[in-house]
């Protein structure tokens, strides 16, 4: 790709309306193809239906915050967290600008901004957010289930088991051989398909079967897409089969 191509493509991305005036685009076949593809991608993305935020989300957030405030008062979790953040002192130059805006404002602002250090989101935060977005229901359950009060078994239950749950000797004598045969069949079936269960071998790492290519990295997804012509169909027998 020539420098002209880069410059032209930057201009087109910044202002798609300028395509008709872009001289380079009229002459460069590579850029014409690139531009056609870029527009197709853009149209595909913009044509995707917008998924509205569930209506109950806003009210749920408000209710949670209000509840936190009423329970904890000024010492709520959110406020404690905000207070715990380290203070970042404003650069002195900012004070000067506020007090005495000068014609050098633009340049000084640029200098100020470039002088600021970039703060990256911690990796662990990105991972936790992604994990939660993947399975919000499961995480809600995991978070709250531990807080539930554990009910105790009534003492009376230990003392007098229900008569109808007592084992029936006749039924047991019938079910025992049937269960043994069933277990044998399951064992035989598992041995027969042993090749499809790599988890039984110790490779020196744990093997976790996933049911969606999105659970692999973009690079792996890209190669997989090439080998399957983009088909992301998963045999339904595999769904939910995780170690």
């Amino acid at each position: 790709m020539l420098p002209d191509c880069n410059t032209s493509r930057d201009r087109l991305l910044a202002d798609p309306e300028c395509a008709s005036k872009e001289e380079h685009l009229r002459e460069c076949v590579d850029c014409q193809v690139w531009w056609a593809r870029a527009r197709r991608v853009s149209e595909s993305i913009t044509s995707l239906p917008r998924i509205p935020v569930p209506a109950e989300l806003a009210s749920a957030v408000e209710a949670t915050l209000a509840e936190g405030r009423s329970q904890d008062g000024p010492d709520s979790l959110v406020e404690r967290a905000l207070r715990s953040l380290p203070r970042v002192p404003a650069p002195a130059i900012l004070d000067d600008l506020v007090l005495d805006p000068s014609p050098l404002y633009t340049g000084t602002t640029a200098q100020l901004l470039t002088g600021l250090s970039r703060v990256r989101t911690p990796n662990v935060l990105e991972r936790l957010v992604q994990e939660e977005l993947e399975a919000p229901a499961r995480h809600r359950v995991e978070r709250f289930v531990g807080d539930l009060e554990r009910p105790t078994v009534p003492a009376a239950l230990d003392e007098s088991p229900l008569p109808q749950l007592r084992p029936n000797r006749g039924l047991r004598s019938f079910l025992a051989p049937v269960a043994a045969i069933a277990a044998g069949l399951v064992l035989w079936g598992n041995l027969g398909t042993r090749d499809h269960q790599p988890e039984s071998i110790d490779y020196g790492f744990d093997v976790v079967r996933v049911t969606s290519p999105e659970q692999l990295s973009p690079l792996a997804q890209s190669i997989l897409g090439g080998l399957t012509t983009g088909s992301r169909l998963t045999p339904s027998s595999e769904k939910g089969r995780a170690q």
């Binding site: 790492f205 093997v207 079967r209 969606s212 659970q215 088909s231």
Partner: peptide, 11 residues
């Protein structure tokens, strides 16, 4: 503490 490998099958 063991390493983990993900396995996905597409056809």
């Amino acid at each position: 503490p063991r390493d983990e490998v993900r396995l996905f099958r597409a056809g």
